[in-house]
Design a protein around this nucleic acid. Structure first.
Lengths: 254, 254
DNA sequence: CCTTGACATTGACGTAGCGTAAAGGTGTAT
DNA sequence: ATACACCTTTACGCTACGTCAATGTCAAGG
C-alpha cells in the first residue's frame, strides 16, 4: 500500500504538516518522490511512523527518537520491550497521581490534612526521592523524630484507611449476600446489590474494572477452595450463589 | 508557611523560571512582593500551584488551566473529581497503548499480523471508537464474526493470564514458606525468598508497592482469621511465620 | 566591615514541534 | 475547461519554558 501525505496522516491521526516536518528533520523520509514532487510512503514508512508515534507518546523528543530508530544496532523488539516498561512505569506514575487526587479530595473536604510536600507527591517521584535522601536527616534534626514519624504514619494511615474500608465492604457483602441467599434468586434486587458491592470491593484491588475480570473472579470463588471456604463458612452454597449473581450482574451468563 | 521562588519551586519540582513565567502570564501571582521585589508565596498559592500542575499533567495548556481555575464558578472539589475521571481515562488509554505494544511485539515476532489501521490503535481513542462504530459492521462482514470475537478474547485472555500467574505465585509462596518454616528462621534465605514472592504477589493487586503496606498486610494475616486460616491450614503458625519474615524483609521490625 | 555565595530581579533571545497562511503546481472528475 | 481537492516550498507564529546576562539582596564568616 502506498500513501500520500494526506492519506498517511489521516491514517495515523497526525497532520500532513507533521509528516513534512518529519521529512525535514530526517526522522521519516518518504519511500520515494514522484515526478511531481509528491511524497510517497510505503509500508516500511508506515511501520516507522508507528514507532515514532509510540515513542512520542512517551514524551521522548524527536531527536531522541531519531537516535533510537536510526541507530544501526537498533533492535526493534528490544526497543518495544523497553518501551513497554516505560509505559508500565508511566502507569504507576498515574496511579500515584490518582492516589494523590484522592488524598487531595479528602484533604479539601477536611477529612485529613496534607503537608505541602505531600501535595506535590507523584509529580516528580525521582525528585521527591532525592529530596528525601538529601533532606531526610536534616528534617529529622530540625523538627525532631516526631514529625518524621508522624509523616511516616500517614502512609500507614492510608493503608489503615483502605483496610478499614475494605473490611467494611466485606461485611456488607456478606450481610447482603446472606439476605439475598434466602430469596433464592440471584437475579433479585438484593443479590444484585451484593454483586455491586462486590464490584466495589474488587475495584479496591484492581486498578481497572472489567466485567470479564469480575466474572472470572466470581468463578474463581467456586473453583478455588480458599475462597469457597471463606464464603461457604457463613452459609453453604454462598460462593456459588455469589458467582451466579455476579454472572448476571456482568451479563456474562448469556 | 511562606516560600520564595526557589523554595516553592524545589517543593513542587518545577524550575524558578516556571514560577516567574506563571506570574508573568498571570496564572499564579505571588501572595505579595516584599520590599526587595522578591515574590513571596503563601499557602493558597501552594494549593493553586498544585492544581495547575495537576492539569498540566493532563496535557491542558496553561491558558485552559487559567480559565478553569480563575473561573468564578470554579469548584475545586468538583474539578478534582473531574480531574480524577480524566486520569482514569488516561490510564485506560495507557492500557490500550500497552496492549498495542504487546500486540506489536507479537506481530514483529511473526505470531500475528496487524492491519495498518490496527497499528495506530490506542493513539487516538476517539478516532478509533468512531472507526469502530463506522466500520465495525463492515469488518464483521468482511472478516466474519470469528475475527471480531477473537479480538475480543484478547481482553479476556489477559485477565486469564493474570489469574494464572497469580495462582502460580500463590503456590510458590506456600511451597517456599513450608520449606522455610522447617528452618525456624524468618530471617533465613528461604523465608526471605518467600517474603519476596509475597511482595510480587502483592504487587499484582496493588498498583504501588510500599514497605509499610506490605508489612500491614502481613500483620493482617495474623489479625484476620480469614487469612490466618488460609495459611495455617497448610501448617499451624505459618501465617505468623510469614508475617515475621515480611517484617524482616521490609525492615519494619526494628 | 567586607567579602563570598546563594539567592533574587528583569530583559531578552533560543528551542521544539508543530499550526497556519501564502503563493503556487497537480490530478481527475464532470 | 473548470472546479476542487490535493500537493509543493517558504516563512512567520505559538507555547512553555531554558538559558544567559546584568544586576540587586541577604546571611554567614573572617
Amino acid at each position: 500500500m502506498e500513501y500520500t501525505v494526506k492519506r498517511l496522516s489521516s491514517l495515523a491521526g497526525v497532520s500532513p504538516r507533521t509528516l513534512r516536518y518529519y521529512d525535514e528533520i530526517g526522522i521519516l523520509k518518504p519511500a520515494r518522490i514522484n515526478s511531481s514532487g509528491y511524497r510517497i510512503y510505503g509500508p516500511r514508512e508506515v511501520d516507522k511512523l508507528q514507532q515514532i508515534l509510540f515513542y512520542r507518546e512517551l514524551g521522548l523528543s524527536l531527536d531522541e527518537i531519531k537516535e533510537i530508530i536510526t541507530s544501526p544496532s537498533f533492535d526493534a523488539i528490544k526497543a518495544l520491550r523497553e518501551h513497554k516498561e516505560k509505559l508500565l512505569a508511566k502507569r504507576e506514575q498515574l496511579e500515584l497521581l490518582i492516589a494523590n487526587v484522592d488524598k487531595t479530595i479528602d484533604s479539601r473536604e477536611g477529612r485529613i490534612t496534607m503537608s505541602d510536600k505531600e501535595k506535590f507527591a507523584g509529580f516528580k517521584q525521582k525528585l521527591v526521592e532525592e529530596n528525601e535522601k538529601k533532606y531526610g536527616k536534616e528534617i529529622r534534626e530540625k523538627y525532631g523524630d516526631e514529625a518524621v514519624d508522624r509523616s511516616n504514619k500517614i502512609l500507614k494511615g492510608m493503608t489503615q484507611e483502605q483496610y478499614e474500608e475494605v473490611t467494611k465492604l466485606e461485611k456488607e457483602i456478606i450481610e447482603t449476600l446472606l439476605k439475598a441467599f434466602k430469596t433464592e434468586d440471584p437475579a433479585g434486587e438484593l443479590a444484585q446489590k451484593a454483586a455491586d458491592l462486590h464490584r466495589q470491593w474488587l475495584s479496591f484491588f484492581w486498578g481497572q474494572y472489567t466485567k470479564e475480570a469480575h466474572a472470572g473472579v466470581a468463578q474463581m470463588y467456586v473453583d478455588d477452595e480458599r475462597f469457597t471456604a471463606y464464603y461457604d463458612k457463613h452459609q453453604p452454597g454462598l460462593a456459588a450463589f455469589l458467582r451466579d449473581a455476579v454472572l448476571i450482574y456482568t451479563g456474562t451468563n448469556k
